[in-house]
Design a binder for these strands. Structure first.
Lengths: 199, 199
DNA sequence: CACCTCTGGCTAACTTAATTAGCTTTTCAG
DNA sequence: CTGAAAAGCTAATTAAGTTAGCCAGAGGTG
């Protein structure tokens, strides 16, 4: 009965790793407990059951995701920033598929901590587009289009939706360049510089 | 003990409806059996357990999805076809979210029946793009970009990923027009007319 | 150093859903 | 009319989540 020295963070991290390697669907209290060398009821001292565990994983993933995108955007702007962020987005989804999948459940609005973690990633995209020269009035539409393209690609790739062996990297690069070209054609010269920045 | 008159198709249809109304995650043998007025073990006479039920729902959904896209493309070509198919795609995802979600698990390649059902939808997109004038060598990339945009948008919308109330219809229309513009700019005049057509 | 209390882990017990086994009755071909 | 396959059922098993309540160990305190 030596203490296992767990914590909510340690449990969430182990759960996230399990999700990455075995798939989010394989995430269970039982499996996480075994990996940590404890009995499953012990986890209740750290997380609020299976739902709570999922929530912790989602928050952890959202934080890491936001950080990854933010780091990719740092020191860059315009097309350069977009390429870098897009690459980081896909890279995250590929290397941490369980975490990425965990992101795809919007947290309830009353869970402000989770919502904040989720918002960060969206804000990076907003910043990139705004710095790209997108007018404030078009920003919401542009963010949605960009998110759709990136998420759709990452999700299809992760699920094996791209059946053909054809070079997926090239497809992605082309899609990103297409987005850049579209943004350019639409940007109205006004370099935009407004305050707010959600979604 | 009057016979309930079930069949694999009837079970799958009930399951798909349940998934649409309660969410794919709520799909269980228990719930489907209750809706059909039978005991859960009875379902085993029609489907191969929970996994089998999921598979049936996926195949059903794939067929309906392919039909919906095909119908939308019929009699149209070029931008007109793309707009119509895109609208049908989103409409399907919105009105039948459980079925749409069920589509997002690629069937194992050895399940040829399921694979065929899934392929049909992809072929409609391929046909639209090919008839659009996309060169055969670019087709794979273009299909992937289009699928990514449509799936990403539909998926984010379904999951409540678009937090803001801003007009989602407009965002979608703009994204589709952006795709059309991108295709136009890239189309190389060669009107293309090659045989094969998967993915 | 002895003691006290809180924390973290454990075992036992309960619930729900999936699944299997084996029984029974309906249906319908002959 | 008869008999067998099909379609439902009940009973029983297994796995996972969850709750309740016990117990030891860690750390602070007199």
């Amino acid at each position: 009965m030596p203490r296992a020295g767990l914590s909510a963070a340690a449990v969430a991290a182990e759960a996230a790793d399990l999700a990455d390697t075995e798939g989010l669907g394989a995430l269970s209290l039982k499996a996480v407990a075994q990996r940590l060398g404890v009995a499953s009821p012990s986890l209740y001292k750290h997380v609020a059951g299976l739902d709570g565990l999922r929530r912790e994983v989602a928050v952890l993933a959202a934080r890491e995701f936001g950080e990854a995108l933010g780091a990719a955007a740092m020191g860059r702007s315009g097309p350069d920033a977009l390429r870098s962020v897009a690459a980081a987005y896909r890279e995250f989804a590929r290397t941490r598929p369980g975490r990425y999948a965990a992101l795809n459940t919007a947290p309830p609005p009353e869970d402000t901590e989770a919502a904040a973690a989720f918002r960060r990633a969206a804000e990076v995209l907003a910043a990139v587009l705004r710095g790209f020269g997108v007018a404030e009035e078009d920003l919401v539409d542009e963010i949605r289009a960009l998110r759709a393209a990136l998420h759709g690609f990452a999700d299809l790739e992760a699920r094996g939706g791209f059946g053909l062996p054809d070079d997926v990297d090239r497809s992605f690069d082309r899609m990103v360049e297409r987005s850049i070209a579209g943004l350019r054609s639409q940007t109205t010269a006004s370099d935009a510089q407004a305050p707010s920045g959600r979604r």
